[in-house]
Design a protein around this nucleic acid. Sequence first.
DNA 1: TTCTCAACTGCAAGAGAGTTGCAAAAAGAA
DNA 2: TTCTTTTTGCAACTCTCTTGCAGTTGAGAA
Lengths: 139, 139
Amino acid sequence: MAVKLKDELKAAGRRLTRPRQAVLEVLEQCQYPLTASELYQQLQEHHVSIDLVTVYRTLTVLKELGLITQLELHQEGQFRYEIREGREHHHHIRCQGCGKIADLLLCPLKKLTAFIEKETRFIVEHHSLEFSGWCPKCQ
Amino acid sequence: MAVKLKDELKAAGRRLTRPRQAVLEVLEQCQYPLTASELYQQLQEHHVSIDLVTVYRTLTVLKELGLITQLELHQEGQFRYEIREGREHHHHIRCQGCGKIADLLLCPLKKLTAFIEKETRFIVEHHSLEFSGWCPKCQ
DNA sequence: TTCTCAACTGCAAGAGAGTTGCAAAAAGAA
DNA sequence: TTCTTTTTGCAACTCTCTTGCAGTTGAGAA
């Protein structure tokens, strides 16, 4: 991934830096999408000293390069980020008790998107589909 | 609606006040979900003087009473509110150009919810499904 | 109608997520 | 190593939403 990161950055006239590598590494190793401040905490735990502002700016860059995806879970009121590499388009479910987030490796919206485009005459570019409820432990 | 509002408030040990009526009236007349500050602006345009803090508190109360629904549109980063009375469960599409929001009077998720519950062993309580794209004028 | 008191409101201040400006630091090409 | 340009850290700021508190008001009781 580090090589890919360097190439993508170079192609966009940008530089490979320690913060950018570190942010991408944390996201690569994490099994669920992180908020900016969770990411910042994890970096501190790994003794990587990066300002929170730099985390935000780095996330913006990685998003622009298409290496990560920005998403919002149901009623959380903040953004989360996850790595894109090697992952199919998918959705999430979040536990209202413990906050656990699980992937849903499905998307039933292809046909629906075509239908919506026909009905509304919008051109659909994105959709977000997130579930919330109670995980087995919190039920 | 005013009668219903009064009854609901009374049942919850709360009072019918001018701000609560005014907020509900604006939401009733609006064809799309409003943010707190849009609501505040519309109230000012109608020469109803209510503090923004009161708007937020009123929205919380109306939500608790089940008279309005709180929702988040794709990547907007703030909440919107819409009246619930007489409206089926539905979703939205928002134009990335002009911000226009249209209702989608459909929900394809009943079967999917059952499937997700079986697969993940979560109990699903809510879902959010929002689309964004380009409306006919902005294409 | 007036009284009474808990519920409500407005103001000021604060919390949390995310952004911007700027000077200092560092990447990387020459 | 030097030089130019990008990037970073710090401070300060914006925006959405919340909290504390003193003064106001709705509505049941007298």
